[in-house]
Design a protein around this nucleic acid. Sequence first.
RNA 1: UGGGUUAUAGUGUAAUGGUAGCACUACAGAUUUUGAUUCUGUCCGUCUAGGUUCGAAUCCUAGUAACCCAACCA
Length: 552
Amino acid sequence: MSEEKSLNFIEEIIETDLAAGQYKSILTRFPPEPNGYLHIGHAKSICLNFGLAIKYGGKTNLRFDDTNPAKEETEYVDSIKEDVKWLGFNWSNELYASDYFDQIYSFAVTLIKNGLAYVDDSTADQIAALKGSPTEPGTNSPFRDRSIDENLTQFAAMKAGAYKDGEKVLRVKIDMAANNMHMRDPIIYRIKHAHHHRTGDQWCIYPMYDFAHGQSDSIENITHSICTLEFIPHRELYEWFINQLEIFPSKQYEFARLNMTYTVMSKRKLLQLVTEGHVQSWDDPRMPTISGMKRRGYTPESIRNFCERIGIAKRENLIDVSLLEFCVREDLNLKAKRVMAVLDPVKLVITNYPEGQTEELISENGPDESYGNRKIQFSKELWIEREDFMEEAAKKWFRLAPGALVRLKSAYIVQCNDFLKDTAGNISEIHATYIPESKSGSDTSEIKVKGTIHWVSVLHAMQAEIRLYDRLFNVENPSQEEGDFKEYINPDSLQIISQAFVETSLINSEVGNHFQFIRKGYFCLDKESTKDKLVFNRTVSLKDAWAKEVKK
RNA sequence: UGGGUUAUAGUGUAAUGGUAGCACUACAGAUUUUGAUUCUGUCCGUCUAGGUUCGAAUCCUAGUAACCCAACCA
């Protein structure tokens, strides 16, 4: 029957919890900070959190971790919601950490009342200096022993706006000698007179991550709070707050974030690429962002499948981008309508075909009948791919060359008998004769050819702009190289072909349609396309066995 | 030289003391009106050294390496 698929470590935990009756059902959350666009690494987290809830009959909240007004914007909130939906997931509740500011404030007051938090007047530098180092214990702040009443008064004054940014902070009283640096009296509230994208100017103090994230989890009754490895040291604090505040015991689990070859995956770096103009925008098709991949023509199914295949574990990883490309091809192979387009055109003249004659031929749209057929126009002069002709045929060359026979896809077999060169020595025109009885679908010629090439009729072709994308960086792991990661940007990551020719049927294509340009790759219509100027993005090339042969 | 986390083919991920499996990549072949797809096959692995055991990727001991932690970021 169905073979057991092995569980990842989080699924094992959940199954154990469920079997023990610890929870009736699970509740997960996807908690982005709205300070940038989502990337493929977030997709891994989204697929995990939503996927777990789907698998075990639970629910998932979308919660924005918006506790730092200086970095967060509504534009990012909107893009994040769009990207999660596009990936195919539905959240139970759209929530914001800022929804809980009142509640979190009262948690802080509780800690003060219990003698567990104090207002510290030290400067940032002083606090850092007293923090010690990983190998040396810290020192207690001189403000650590303020009275509860004084702390209460001062904290209220902080909230009321009596102080400037940085003048005071609220810290929690734990242990300045703890091995875990996060337990050395962490700051839980800071003063920031900044406009918040949702609460406006209502607050001038904001909770820190450690005093907002876990509290939000707990308020929502999140059962499994899943984050990435770098938060492991925060877990001890996460649990400390839950115990001290006696709130719902959400549990934190950590998995390894996604790294992928030839790209970067930090919002900070991606932001730089955008603001410094190395790419056009967050949704530039070369970006590892969800919106970039969408625009490039990747499908949600292929991304979800990719996330499924890479698995969930705790060790550092660097996933080969070719696995993502495989998933994209696998999906597009099933979905993309086949059409013909010539990217680097050279003219082929069928010398024995009647001048002025046009023929309507039938071509299949896909690998089987369910895709249907379409009509294509054939005439005396055709555009073919420059690389499909060789003046002197190489070994194992199946394409056009003087004297060689080749099939024009869905049309006739032709034989090349001449070619012309321009003054610069480039091939300017190729002459061939066609074999009338070799017509596709009713071939009685009994001629076998090894090569089939694509073409479009000169008379009927439409001009189009085609954008080819290559990897954004020319080293596997730009973040790990010496110096600035931007030194490793691939200067040729975008190639624009302004004079390509595509078949007429493409006039009706829409943004979001996927095509296979036969023998050239998968393409989609770009959002910058207009009726007068079609613009296509190459999503991914086809595997190319000949290119490999040439390399050898 | 503190604490934490992780080590399985080139990459990623299984095997929970009992035949080291799967996918991608690479390579070879078959089919093909896309040098695509599809199909078949091949190469390649348990961090090191000891130990326990009939039997160890798994348990024990000692090493080694990588990553994370000293933001009023998340």
